[in-house]
Simulated scan of single mutants.
Amino acid sequence: MEQLIKSIDYIFNGKLKLLTRFSTTGVINTLIDFLVFTICNSVFNIYYTISQVIGYSFGVINSFIFNKKWTFEKNSSNKRISHELTQFIAVNLISLIITLFLIKYLVSYFNLNVYVAKIIVTLIAQVINFILYKFWVFN
Score class of each variant (00 low, 15 high):
Asn67His: 10
Thr20Gly: 11
Lys69Thr: 15
Leu18Ile: 15
Lys104Leu: 06
Asn129Asp: 08
Phe135Leu: 12
Asn139Ala: 06
Asn67Tyr: 04
Asp9Thr: 12
Asn75Met: 08
Ile97Leu: 13
Ile39Ala: 07
Lys69Tyr: 13
Leu132Lys: 05
Ile98Cys: 13
Asn62Ile: 06
Leu123Trp: 07
Asp9Met: 09
Leu132Cys: 06
Asp33Ile: 11
Lys15Phe: 15
Ala117Phe: 03
His83Phe: 14
Val121Trp: 00
Trp136Phe: 15
Tyr105Ile: 15
Met1Ile: 02
Gln126Phe: 14
Leu18Thr: 15
Thr25Glu: 00
Gln87Leu: 13
Tyr47Asn: 04
Ile46Pro: 06
Leu35Asp: 01
Asn45Gln: 13
Val91Arg: 08
Ser51Ile: 09
Leu93Gly: 13
Asn139Leu: 02
Met1Cys: 09
Asp33Pro: 11
Val53Cys: 05
Leu100Trp: 00
Ile5Tyr: 08
Asn111Arg: 11
Val114Arg: 05
Ser7Lys: 09
Leu112Phe: 10
Lys68Arg: 12
Ile50Arg: 10
Asn67Met: 12
Lys134Leu: 09
Phe130Gln: 03
Ile50Phe: 15
Tyr56Thr: 12
Asn29Asp: 00
Ser77Pro: 06
Ala90Asn: 03
Leu102Tyr: 02
Ile124Asn: 11
Leu18Met: 14
Phe66Cys: 10
Trp136Met: 05
Arg21Leu: 13
Gln126Pro: 04
Tyr47Gln: 09
Asn13Val: 11
Val36Cys: 02
Val53Gly: 01
Leu102Ser: 08
Thr38Met: 09
Thr30Pro: 01
Ile65Trp: 12
Lys74Trp: 05
Val43Glu: 07
Ile124Glu: 08
Asn75Trp: 07
Met1Arg: 04
Phe101Asp: 01
Asn45Phe: 12
Ile54Lys: 13
Gly59Leu: 06
Asn75Ile: 07
Ile81Arg: 07
Ile46His: 04
Phe88Asp: 06
Ile61Pro: 08
Leu123Asp: 02
Ser82His: 01
Glu2His: 12
Ser82Thr: 13
Thr38Trp: 07
Ile128Glu: 05
Ile54Gly: 09
Phe12Lys: 04
Asn62Lys: 07
Ile97Thr: 10
Phe37Cys: 06
Phe110Lys: 14
Lys118Trp: 04
Ile50Trp: 15
Val60Met: 07
Lys118Asn: 06
Asn75Ser: 11
Phe130Lys: 02
Leu35Glu: 01
Gln52Asp: 03
Met1Thr: 06
Ile39Glu: 02
Leu102Lys: 04
Asn111Met: 08
Tyr105Gly: 12
Ile128Gln: 10
Arg21Ile: 03
